[in-house]
Design a protein around this nucleic acid. Structure first.
Lengths: 265, 265
DNA sequence: AAGTGGTCTAGACCACCTA
DNA sequence: AGGTGGTCTAGACCACTTT
């Protein structure tokens, strides 16, 4: 298997196509990335110097650097001033996991229904008060929702919002669309920043009933704490996610370049 | 509280210090990022055009663009050709979680001991064979380790390695240092790329015993599949991580700029 | 047409490393 | 001293959007 790559060709420099509307720096980054993916360049190998790249591809130094910088940002290369540019070994610590899966779970409003389990004003208990930076017993809006992509429950959301009559915007928070906006990035005007953390949890009786799971069962617990523009907490809560409907994925190293796949940037 | 910021000052342009050895583009990126963090610039706001930045800061267009590009990459800004550059609303989908915590759990060799629970050659069962792309019954090296930062068990690792007598390197895999190398990125020469996924799991009796946890208990299950330079699987396995020793964290939006903190890049 | 961001040039100068 | 990457310039030209 796999005899189409004769190991030691004299190196086909594979030049830049200036007509193609794909920026030269992207083309060059793709070329070098593919060389790493194919194994032509291996961890520890030193790349040609910028000057050599300039000569070989007929591009200006800035364009060369831009291409290589992309790969440095991606973690593929490692540039050290005065020494050279090298191929980085893979590193588990550089793996990053995103929330795309969670987004797709209820990002498309068409296939996801949501049930409001509860929404009322109550007074904050010890923990809630501490998280939101208010006095114990202060009034908060308590919301519980069940998110059901394709009709089957997958995520149970529990949230405490600062109750402030002068800020009527919070009412819109009760709608599920507020969550979808958070994921699609459209027009969030109240929240400046947020902190997220993922843990695992054993489902409680109620959670298992709502999520239609048999006990005992484990699940993700994604806690969130959102701050307003005054840097005061506005919202605290967590998502309980069935592990069989959600998974976090990441790659390390350069994945095989799929034919149809385009690189962004 | 918080009266030191009078809402509508005539804008202190806060210029670039050319003597400071901090690149101009970093300084400018920091300035704009701080404006977003402070709320001076809000989601949806349009930034000055590049030409205006050039005039205001006395930098060349390329330098301006470089600074703004950093913030675009960070997800802080949003540049659209022909329209302008805008402050992006926060977006949950852009949150990314890293493995730094896991790394620190056993990245520093000093405080982490490891116990080899088992290491032997056996024949692959159905699932293992499928994952590793070999025939069922093929020979694999089976390794089980217990990682104990500060003497207390936190992670249980179970791994299946292709057994290939022609490739004696795998023996070194049995040492715990092989794992630490994976995290520190030093000199991994066998593995080209890997795929990771995180799920939750209920601990089995044996896992609970090894990790010294009372049942029932939930935990993270981080599965890994590593490929060699021939793009064939080399190693498959998973980490079982006590949830109370490991947590995944992420931020969205621009976090408050801590005084001592330096931004990389 | 005028304004915006996007790409690219052909250098210059600097900081760092090795010899 | 000579090589390496890192920063920066002062423009040019292009593509897209709006008026």
């Amino acid at each position: 298997m796999k005899e189409n790559l004769s190991g030691s060709r004299p190196k086909p420099p594979q030049s830049i196509d200036r007509d193609l509307y794909k920026p030269a720096y992207v083309q060059l980054a793709d070329i070098v990335r593919a060389q790493v993916a194919s194994g032509e360049l291996r961890p520890g190998d030193q790349l040609p110097s910028e000057a050599q790249f300039v000569a070989r591809y007929g591009l200006s130094p800035m364009t060369i650097r831009r291409a290589l910088n992309i790969l440095v940002d991606e973690g593929v290369l490692n540039a050290r001033q005065g020494k050279g540019t090298f191929v980085r070994p893979i590193n588990l610590a550089q793996a990053t996991f995103g929330l795309e899966d969670l987004r797709s779970l209820f990002g498309d409003e068409a296939h996801t229904s949501a049930r409001l389990v509860e929404a009322r004003v109550r007074s904050a208990d010890e923990l809630t008060a501490r998280k939101l930076g208010i006095a114990r017993g202060g009034r908060v809006i308590f919301i519980r929702r069940l998110l059901c992509p394709e009709g089957r429950p997958a995520v149970y959301h529990r949230e405490y919002l600062i109750y402030d009559p002068t800020r009527p915007i919070v009412e819109s928070e009760m709608e599920v669309t507020a969550l979808q906006r958070l994921f699609s990035g459209r027009g969030e005007t109240v929240l400046k920043r947020g902190e997220l953390s993922i843990e695992t949890t054993l489902l409680t009786d109620e959670e298992a009933r709502l999520l239609e799971v048999k006990l005992p069962a484990s699940a993700f617990r994604i806690e969130h704490l959102f701050y307003g523009f005054d840097d005061q907490p506005l919202s605290w809560g967590w998502f309980i996610c069935r592990s069989d409907r959600l998974r976090f994925r990441a790659h390390v190293g350069v994945a095989a370049p799929e034919p149809g796949t385009e690189h962004s940037r």
